[in-house]
């Protein structure tokens, strides 16, 4: 393993300037629909997202960090993202992350991906390749992706509901053991994907997140971009 944990802290910092602050990870739609109203329902929402879209994203990130062809992973990410709105979001965020990553950890692999996907590759793939450029391993990349899957919605719900920020942070802390577990599963799948290709990666999804993402994209007034 190249780098120690410090690079992971830089990468997973909520202030890493890669555009995440403008996105709620589906939380805005869930709040509007009355499915997230307090800390308990936020925890349910985050748990659901972690084990579905979160696991898929973590596995893609881990595979990219493990050296699996990022373009093949980008196609695999498309196949795992049926909602056009979420595909667009993932690519937009991937492009923004590419910009930040190339400034933070210059790397020929990031340059090559940026050249091959000028409009942006899927964000988890870029995240994984960024982890690789930072000298981090697949498990680190999976942790970063899995954490993002829950920290984004939690931060958004603090803004959307005026939820007590201490309660929101406690939700994330309670989810930490499950997050570790999801990251390990993702890294294990990534190890297989090195030999078997992207088909070895999990393809979990949350249909309600896909459906509400499409609806949310059509709202005329919203606080978050997704």
């Amino acid at each position: 393993m190249g780098a120690g944990h410090a690079a992971l802290l830089v990468l997973a910092d909520g202030r890493f300037p890669a555009g995440g602050h403008a996105h709620s990870g589906g939380a805005e739609a869930a709040v509007k629909a009355g499915r997230v109203t307090d800390a308990a329902s936020l925890e349910d929402f985050c748990r659901g997202r972690l084990h579905t879209a979160g696991l898929s994203a973590a596995a893609l990130a881990a595979a990219a960090a493990a050296g699996v062809d990022p373009l093949a992973l980008d196609d695999a990410a498309d196949a795992r993202t049926p909602s056009p709105a979420l595909r667009a979001t993932a690519r937009r965020l991937g492009r923004q992350m590419t910009r930040a990553a190339r400034a933070a950890w210059p790397s020929p692999e990031l340059d090559a991906l940026a050249a091959a996907r000028p409009r942006g590759a899927h964000q988890p793939v870029v995240l994984g390749l960024t982890a690789r450029a930072a000298g981090l391993g697949p498990l680190d990349a999976a942790h970063a992706a899995a954490y993002e899957a829950v920290s984004g919605p939690a931060t958004a719900v603090v803004r959307l509901l005026g939820l007590d920020p201490f309660d929101a942070t406690a939700v994330l802390a309670r989810l930490a053991p499950e997050l570790d577990h999801v990251a390990e599963r993702a890294a294990e799948a990534a190890r297989r994907a090195v030999h078997e290709g992207p088909d070895a990666l999990p393809a979990c999804s949350a249909p309600l997140l896909d459906i509400t993402a499409e609806q949310h994209a059509a709202w005329p007034v919203r606080l978050f971009a997704s």
């Binding site: 202030r15 300037p17 890669a18 555009g19 995440g20 602050h21 403008a22 996105h23 709620s24 937009r92 492009r95 923004q96 910009r99 930040a100 958004a156 803004r159 919203r222 606080l223 978050f224 971009a225």
Partner: peptide, 20 residues
Amino acid sequence: VETGACPHTAIRDDISANLE
């Protein structure tokens, strides 16, 4: 550009969307 309830973030702390 959409700013996620935080206009100053989008012009100062995380300018990636605006630069794009």
